[in-house]
Design a protein around this nucleic acid. Structure first.
Length: 603
RNA sequence: GCCGACAUAGCUCAGUUGGCUAGAGCAGCUGAUUUGUAAUCAGCAGGCCCGGGGUUCAAAUCCUCGUGUCGGCACCA
C-alpha cells in the first residue's frame, strides 16, 4: 500500500511533499479508506477534476474545491454551458490524466507572485483576497497548477475509484447576492469495493425516498393544478396520519394540554403586534376582506394567545397548556420545496405553555421527556441543540440572556447532553431543537422547544400573582413531530415504508383462498374494526399466488390466508411480512395479538 | 429566487435525423378459471404527448414564455 501523507503529533495531516520540504518525519498515512486518507484522496480528486475541466474548457476559472461530508466538490466558472451529460466526459478525461501518473509537486511563492500567476482568473483572485499570509503554496500536476494549501497525494496515478455525482449552481462565497458558479460534486475511495458500497448506499436511500414510496403506497400526492407545495393526502396516508394524531392526542391530554383551535387567518394588525408582519411578512400569504387586510397564519401562537386572553388567570392556574394540530401556510421559495419535507401548507403538532418564570425549568424537562417517549417509540436516536440569539431578533439582550440561561439550566440540572448553535435561535427567543437520526444514519430536525419572553410582552399578557399584582407569564412554544407532513416523510424513509403495526395504514391483509371463504374474511374484517385495526380483503378474481403477491407489495404488516381448514378450525394462517414464514393460530389469539400490538404503544 | 436537467395513459417507461392511426408492461374493465402462500388465460378500454405562443407543407420531437418536478445553491423566523 502506498504512503500518501504524514500525520503530525498534533494530529494535523501534512502531505509527503510538505514533509520533504520540512524534513519532517511522523506517522505515515497509507492510501486506505480511513478518514485521514480519504480526506487527502478526495482533495486530490477535486484537483484532478479541475485539471480535466481546464483541459476541456480552456477559459475555466476556479474558486475553491474542498472536501465535504459527501465527498468533494469544486466551484468554477466557464463560458460553456455544462450539464449532467458532461460529467461522463469529465470523468473520462480525469481517468486519462490519472493514467499518466503525474507527480503532484508543491512549491511556494509570494502572494504577489500568485496574483500575477493567476491574473486572468478572477476567482483565484477572490481566493487570494481571503488568504492572510504573504506566502502561498502551489500544487502542480502535469501542466495544471492550482493555488492550494493541500494536503495532496504524491501522485495522481493513485486516484482510481471515484465518481462525479452531481452538478449544480452555487453562489460565490455562499452568498446569494454574488454571481453563481458551477459546482460539481464527486466521491472517491481507496478501493473499488468501498466505492461500490457507497453507491449501493445511495441506491438504498433512493429506494426509501418518501416521494417514491408515498406514490407507490398511495399515501399522498401533489398536483400541478393544485399548486406547488400543497400536499393531497390519499386514503392510506389519511389512515396513517389519523393513527398518529389520535395517539398524540391522548398523550397531550395525559400531560394536561387542552385542545384549542384558532382561525386560519387573522387581521394583519395582530401580525404587526406579534412582529411577524415586520419580520416574516414576505413569507406570509395575505388577503383582503371588506378592505381589511388579513394574514393567513404561519404559526399558531397568536390564536393561542387569544385563547389565553379569553379569561383572567391566577398564578394558581399556571402552567396553562394549549395544543392544536395547527394548519399553517408559509411561502417557501420554489427551489426549497421537496416532497413532504418542505411544503407551503402543513400541520404542526403545536402547543403553547403559559407559565411562571419559576416553572420554566420543570416545563422544559417535561417536554423533553415527552420528546423522548415519542422518539424512542419510533426507534430514533436524537440529540438536542440549544440555539442562541440570531442577528435578526427582537427583545433586549438581557431578556435573551435570561431565557437562554433558563434552557441551559434545565438541561444541566438533569444532566442532559446538548450542543450549542450560536445565533441559531428564532427571532423571538432561544430554543432547543431536537435532531433525530434515522435507520440509515441520516439526521433530521423535527421537534423544537422555544422560549418566548417577547410575545407576552407585545400582547400584554398577564396573570394575578399571590400578592394580587399583575405579572407577565412566560410562553413556551413547542412542537414534537414538527409537522405531520415532514414527520411522516421521515418515518416513511426510516421504515422504508414498512410501518409498524400501530401506525400502518392497514394492519392486516386478508386473503381468502376461494369465493366460498369470502364471508369468513368479511366477518374477520369486522372483528378487526372492533379492535381498531384496518384490514383489506384480497378477494379479486386472481390466483391465490397473485393476491398474496399483491398484498405483500403493499407492505402490510400481516397477511392472513383463509381457506377450508381455517374456517373449520376457526383459525387463521398468518404470513410474516419479512420472513415469509407461515403459522396457524386461533382467530381469538390472532385478534388478541393485533390488539396488543396496536395498544402497546403509548407516548 | 439562482444554476442545470426533465415533463408522453392511473403508475413505470419506449417513441430514430421533425414525417403513416403515438407504443409497451403494470394497474383498470369484461369473460373463462375458484385457485393453499410472490404474477392463470383471453379480450376490451384508456392520450389536450404539462399549458400558451411561434417556426414549418408537417411538431410529442425545434424555438419561446409559463407551470410543475428533480439535483444542488441560497432560504427554513
Amino acid at each position: 500500500m502506498n504512503e500518501i501523507a504524514i500525520k503530525k503529533n498534533d494530529g494535523e495531516i501534512i502531505d509527503t511533499q510538505t514533509a520533504k520540504e520540512l524534513g519532517f518525519e511522523g506517522e505515515a498515512i497509507f492510501l486506505d479508506n480511513s478518514p485521514e486518507a480519504l480526506e487527502v484522496l478526495r482533495h486530490s480528486t477535486a484537483h484532478l477534476m479541475a485539471q480535466a475541466i481546464k483541459s476541456l474548457y480552456s477559459d475555466a476559472e476556479f474558486y475553491v474545491g474542498p472536501v465535504v461530508k459527501e465527498g468533494f466538490y469544486y466551484d468554477f466558472k466557464t463560458s460553456a454551458e455544462i450539464g449532467e451529460s458532461d460529467l461522463k466526459k469529465i470523468e473520462k478525461q480525469m481517468l486519462s490524466f490519472a493514467k499518466k501518473k503525474y507527480e503532484i509537486e508543491k512549491y511556494t511563492i509570494t502572494k504577489a507572485e500568485a496574483r500575477e500567476k493567476f491574473k486572468d482568473d478572477h476567482l483565484k483572485q477572490a481566493v487570494l483576497d481571503m488568504i492572510p499570509s504573504d506566502e502561498v503554496s502551489i500544487y502542480k500536476q502535469g501542466e495544471f497548477e492550482d493555488l492550494c494549501r493541500g494536503p495532496h497525494l504524491p501522485n495522481i496515478g493513485l486516484i482510481r475509484y471515484f465518481k462525479l455525482t452531481k452538478i449544480s449552481g452555487a453562489y460565490l462565497g455562499g452568498d446569494s447576492k454574488n454571481e453563481m458558479l458551477t459546482r460539481i460534486y464527486g466521491i472517491a475511495f481507496a478501493t473499488k469495493d468501498a466505492l461500490k458500497e457507497h453507491m449501493d448506499m445511495l441506491r438504498e436511500a433512493e429506494k426509501r425516498d418518501h416521494r417514491k414510496l408515498g406514490n407507490e403506497m398511495k399515501l399522498f400526492t401533489f398536483r400541478e393544478e393544485v399548486g406547488a407545495g400543497f400536499p393531497i393526502w390519499l386514503p392510506a396516508g389519511g389512515r396513517l396520519r389519523a393513527r398518529l394524531e389520535s395517539l398524540l392526542f391522548k398523550a397531550h391530554r395525559k400531560r394536561g394540554y387542552e385542545p384549542v383551535r384558532g382561525p386560519e387567518m387573522l387581521r394583519s394588525d395582530l401580525w404587526m403586534t406579534s412582529g411577524h408582519y415586520q419580520n416574516y411578512g414576505e413569507n406570509m400569504y395575505f388577503t383582503k376582506i371588506d378592505d381589511i387586510e388579513f394574514g393567513v397564519k404561519p404559526m399558531n401562537c397568536v390564536g393561542h394567545i387569544k385563547v389565553y386572553e379569553d379569561e383572567l388567570h391566577s398564578y394558581r392556574d399556571l402552567p396553562i397548556k394549549y395544543f392544536e394540530y395547527g394548519v399553517v401556510h408559509r411561502h417557501e421559495m420554489t427551489g426549497a420545496l421537496h416532497g413532504l419535507f418542505r411544503v407551503r401548507e402543513f400541520t404542526q403538532d403545536d402547543a403553547h405553555i403559559f407559565c411562571r418564570a419559576d416553572q420554566i425549568e420543570e416545563q422544559i424537562i417535561e417536554v423533553v421527556d415527552f420528546v423522548d417517549k415519542i422518539m424512542s417509540t419510533f426507534e430514533f436516536d436524537y440529540k438536542m441543540m440549544i440555539s442562541t440569539r440570531p442577528e435578526k431578533a427582537v427583545g433586549s439582550d438581557e431578556v435573551w440572556e435570561i431565557s437562554t440561561q433558563a434552557l441551559k439550566n434545565a438541561m444541566d440540572k438533569n444532566e442532559l447532553a446538548y450542543e450549542i448553535d450560536e445565533g441559531g435561535g428564532a427571532f423571538y427567543g432561544p430554543k432547543i431543537d431536537i435532531k433525530i437520526t434515522d435507520a440509515i444514519g441520516r439526521e433530521w430536525q423535527c421537534g423544537t422547544i422555544q422560549l418566548d419572553f417577547n410575545l407576552p410582552e407585545r400582547f400584554h399578557l398577564e396573570y394575578n400573582a399571590d400578592n394580587n399584582e399583575k405579572v407577565q407569564p412566560v410562553m413556551i412554544h413547542r412542537a414534537i413531530l414538527g409537522s405531520f407532513e415532514r414527520f411522516i416523510g421521515i418515518l416513511t424513509e426510516h421504515y422504508a415504508g414498512e410501518f409498524p403495526m400501530f401506525i400502518a395504514p392497514t394492519q392486516v391483509a386478508i386473503v381468502p383462498v376461494a369465493e366460498s371463504h369470502k364471508e369468513y374474511a368479511k366477518l374477520l374484517s369486522d372483528k378487526l374494526i372492533d379492535i381498531n385495526a384496518d384490514s383489506e380483503i384480497y378477494a379479486k378474481n386472481d390466483s391465490l399466488n397473485k393476491r398474496i403477491r399483491t398484498a405483500e407489495k403493499t407492505r402490510v404488516p400481516m397477511i392472513v390466508v383463509i381457506g377450508d381448514e381455517e374456517i373449520k378450525n376457526n383459525t387463521v394462517a398468518v404470513r410474516d411480512r419479512r420472513t415469509r414464514e407461515q403459522y396457524n393460530m386461533s382467530q381469538e389469539d390472532f385478534l388478541k395479538l393485533i390488539q396488543t400490538k396496536i395498544n402497546e404503544v403509548n407516548f
